[in-house]
Design a protein around this nucleic acid. Structure first.
Lengths: 157, 157
DNA sequence: TGAAAACAGACCATTTTAGTACGATATAGA
DNA sequence: TCTATATCGTACTAAAATGGTCTGTTTTCA
């Protein structure tokens, strides 16, 4: 199974939570409360995400984190890249060129590149707004979803 | 970085090597010789791949492995599935349903499903024939590529 | 019957990942 | 200017996944 790491998964969950009220500033404890993630973990992920342009941090009292852009302008691709670096399915096609000893004449390169392009396009195509759009999902209730963590069993187990 | 496991990468390399002469029967040591992989590792991967319909095994003396179908009829998706199970980018959307505590009302589900569909389509679209098609790559020379391992540094280091 | 091959599974070492902790730094407000 | 409240950065530990090897069994051909 091809999987994103849990951290990346959490990253998307956190960003989705923030996107529910886009203007809002949230601290790490706030995020922890809304997602069920332990505070240190939430803090760590927020720190990583804040290195990217789409999440702004403010230090000091009354500080916290805030979305820089509207949810519909932030793609899942950007979040994944922030958490894991460039998105590619094989080491053959990513940034570290010397991984592949026959890189310059590798016949498989073309095939992998095609696959990677498709994956990237798919990730670019889905935005935060898509992710937390209640209207697309019949049974969701605002207050019910509030303190739950959508992508994984965060507090269970 | 989203990555396939090395094993899966090797799996594609091995299958590509077998696809170069589709009728051929190869033993694990043969494969090892052509790819640079250690024999036990090649054997292990062949064993896994042979559980799938596209690779047939024959036991006993003069046994070995053989492609069941033509290279253009075997997609990368099938190889990846043979090595890693169902292809999905999050635990949210794969077969193990209980992973997601709010599965039935998770608003993010739709987004992930879209991404997974695109990835699957991309993997289905590329076949073994595409992977080892020399004509698509200017500089490849048959004898040169023969004993090299395209996707990773298998014998280096 | 013996050699050659796949098969099955257990096993260990290494790497990666998740999660925590602690000290440093910045900022708002009294 | 002091203090409370944040982020920031890094180092560390524990647990899980992964890669890779080994040993023994079964099958088949000559």
């Amino acid at each position: 199974m091809i999987k994103l790491s849990k951290m990346t998964d959490y990253g998307v969950v956190i960003m989705s939570e923030m996107a529910r009220l886009p203007g809002r500033t949230m601290t790490a404890p706030d995020v922890s409360l809304h997602t069920g993630l332990p505070v240190p973990t939430a803090a760590k992920i927020l720190r990583i995400l804040a290195k990217s342009p789409f999440l702004t941090s403010h230090r000091g009292a009354h500080g916290g984190y805030q979305l820089t852009y509207a949810p519909e302008d932030i793609s899942i691709a950007e979040i994944v890249r922030a958490m894991e670096g460039p998105v590619a399915v094989t080491s053959c096609v990513d940034d570290s060129v010397e991984d592949c000893s026959v890189q310059s004449c590798c016949p498989m390169r073309g095939g992998w590149e095609k696959i990677n392009r498709a994956l990237n396009t798919a990730l670019e195509d889905v935005t935060l707004a898509d992710m937390c759009d209640d209207t697309k999902n019949v049974m969701t209730e605002r207050r019910g979803a509030e303190s739950l963590s959508p992508a994984s069993q965060l507090q269970a187990e």
